[in-house]
């Protein structure tokens, strides 16, 4: 089967070389000790750090796409999402559609008023759900999730897991999910790859 995301010889100064193929609809889990390079791998794929190697999405080379287009299609979501304006909706990509946002809000169990919420008053669970929702509005083909549920309670964790699973199934998108939690690993299922000293063991 053809890869959705195809990685060959991806390297940074502390990572790789890494080869990886993520298929449409597939969720690949990445584990490893802290400092082993899990975040570096995701950041390198999102092209946030200087890196070498061949990365292709839907058989299109990364360098053939503008960095902004690449990062919309291959969405990196960190453990702590960044917020810079006053209200939630100001952080959405330009041209977002209310109907689409309403659908996502329902899936994440968020009320519609949350679009006008003050960033200062968001709980960590709301932040992470809204942070993921914001990334979904770009219609990414691949999600790079860097411990997206690290600081969340079980209820919020499961909401995010369900939303991601649902998105992958509907859009035939792929995901790399970095997780420390063994229970979460069992819930998510799928391929689990361990990273050691910057290299992937399969």
């Amino acid at each position: 089967m053809d890869c959705l995301l195809e990685i060959e010889g991806l390297e940074t100064s502390h990572l790789g070389p890494v080869d990886l193929c993520v298929q449409p609809g597939e969720l690949v889990q990445i584990t490893g000790a802290s400092g082993s390079g899990k975040s570096l791998l995701l950041r390198a794929i999102a092209d946030l750090d200087p890196n070498r190697g061949r990365v292709r999405l839907d058989d299109q080379a990364r360098d053939d796409l503008a960095p902004t287009d690449w990062r919309r299609k291959v969405a990196y979501v960190p453990a702590e999402t960044a917020w810079w304006a006053l209200q939630v909706a100001e952080h959405f990509p330009a041209g977002w559609v209310r109907g689409e946002v309403q659908g996502w809000l329902a899936r994440f169990s968020l009320p519609e008023e949350s679009l006008q919420w003050d960033i200062e008053r968001l709980s960590s669970g709301e932040r992470q759900r809204l942070g993921l929702l914001r990334a979904f509005l770009n219609h990414p083909r691949v999600l790079l999730l860097d411990e997206p549920t690290a600081n969340l309670d079980l209820e919020n964790t499961r909401r995010i897991e369900r939303a991601v699973r649902g998105y992958l199934a509907e859009e035939a998108a792929g995901a790399l999910w970095v997780s420390h939690d063994t229970l979460q690993r069992q819930r998510l299922g799928g391929r689990i790859l361990e990273i050691r000293a910057g290299k992937l063991d399969s």
Binding site: T68, W84, P93
Partner: peptide
């Protein structure tokens, strides 16, 4: 100081011009 916000905005597909405007 704001490097996390800048990279967060880049990761959402914004240009560096937008991400550093303020």
């Amino acid at each position: 100081r704001e490097r996390r916000v800048i990279e967060g905005r880049l990761a959402l597909g914004e240009s560096w011009v937008n991400a550093t405007a303020t």
